[in-house]
Amino acid sequence: MPRKRIYRSKKKLGQIPGSIIYTGERSKEKLNLEAFDYTKENCTELDLKSITETFEFKDTISTTWINFNGLNYVKEIEQLGAHYGIHPLVLEDIVNIAQRPKIDEHDDYMFVVLKMLYYDEKQHIVSEQVSFILGQNYVLSFQESEGDVFDTVRDRIRQGKGRVRSMSADYLLYTLIDAIVDHYFSVIEILGDKIEDFETTIFAGEIDDDVSQKIQNLKREILRVRRAIFPLREVISRIEKDENKLIHKRTITYYRDIYDHLIQVSENIDIYREMIWSLMDMYMTTISNKMNEVMKVLTIMASIFIPLTFIAGIYGMNFEYIPELRYKYSYFILWGVMIVLFLGMLYYFRKKKWL
């Protein structure tokens, strides 16, 4: 069964707006802070030990990416938010992992929430909330736990590949969002393979007892992916169309490319969603056809034995005067008639292609 996340949303009922309460699973992992501080010529990669070590990167001339792993460390997030001037409502949204993908624009920063999707080692789909704060020369990212899809971005920053080190923080945000969106293609590709495998299985008639449950699980997976991806189109559209001082004109084209990818992913999701509905219809049709085959065989068998039963019933009556009752070869003649009837009906059914 797919892994279920436990949300503690009840803790937020009745709380003052801006109360920073983590709603995810309690993790025993240590706080993990990593930072990339770079210019076009140089790059420094740091594993930070405390939240105060992140404060020095706020007003540097270089571009900085600080990745915060461990949303259950609420006090540290409050400290970070106080130093970078992040509104308490934004901090509340960061630790509330049931957020819908969205974007909030403030005077000095932009807040973006989206879902990172991937399959775990048991082929269960995992949806993890990732939040971004885009400032003038920095990007803060917040994840529930270690493990993400940003390794390619890290390698590009370390090795100076592409444009990331020569562009500003808005391009860094683009590369991080693009890495997440690119991974959506991997997720829907696996979903597509699962659907095609089920189609092949059902067409071949190799139907297990749990096929309907597996189809329902696929349906839930596609709906989970859809909920994560469809609202993100609105987020990217706003970044593309709104004139925000943090997003430079030369970067808008790249965000437009993300939007095109999201449209493509959304179309595939709609196709797979229709295919899953078709799978259920196909499964029910196959079950019905199998039942019809069984009923046809039983009906043919009953039809064959009806005249034989009739003859046996006639000659099984206890009347004293029955024609052929005392005839020497009556028994053998009766068997001959019954066998001829049996073979004749089989021939007729085969000719009609009922057998």
Rank of each mutant, 00 (worst) to 15 (best):
R3N: 14
S9F: 14
K11N: 12
G14R: 13
E25Y: 04
S27T: 14
N32G: 07
A35F: 00
F36C: 07
K40L: 14
I66A: 10
L71R: 07
Y73P: 00
K75L: 09
E78V: 11
N96S: 09
K102L: 03
Y109K: 07
L117T: 02
E121A: 13
E121L: 11
Q129P: 13
Y138R: 07
S141W: 07
T152V: 13
V153H: 05
I157G: 03
R158H: 04
M167H: 06
S168G: 08
Y171W: 02
D178K: 06
I180C: 13
Y184C: 00
K194D: 15
D197G: 12
T200M: 13
F203T: 02
S212T: 09
Q216F: 10
K219Y: 10
E221T: 00
A228V: 00
E234M: 00
E240N: 13
K241I: 10
D242E: 14
I247M: 13
H248A: 12
I252P: 07
I252L: 13
H261F: 09
S266N: 06
E267I: 05
N268P: 00
D270C: 04
I271P: 04
S278D: 14
L279G: 02
L279M: 04
Y283M: 04
T285W: 01
M291I: 13
V294A: 06
K296I: 04
L298W: 12
M301S: 11
A302G: 14
S303K: 06
T309N: 13
A312V: 11
F319E: 03
E324L: 15
R326N: 15
K328V: 15
S330I: 06
F332V: 15
G336Y: 11
L341E: 11
L341G: 00
Y348E: 07
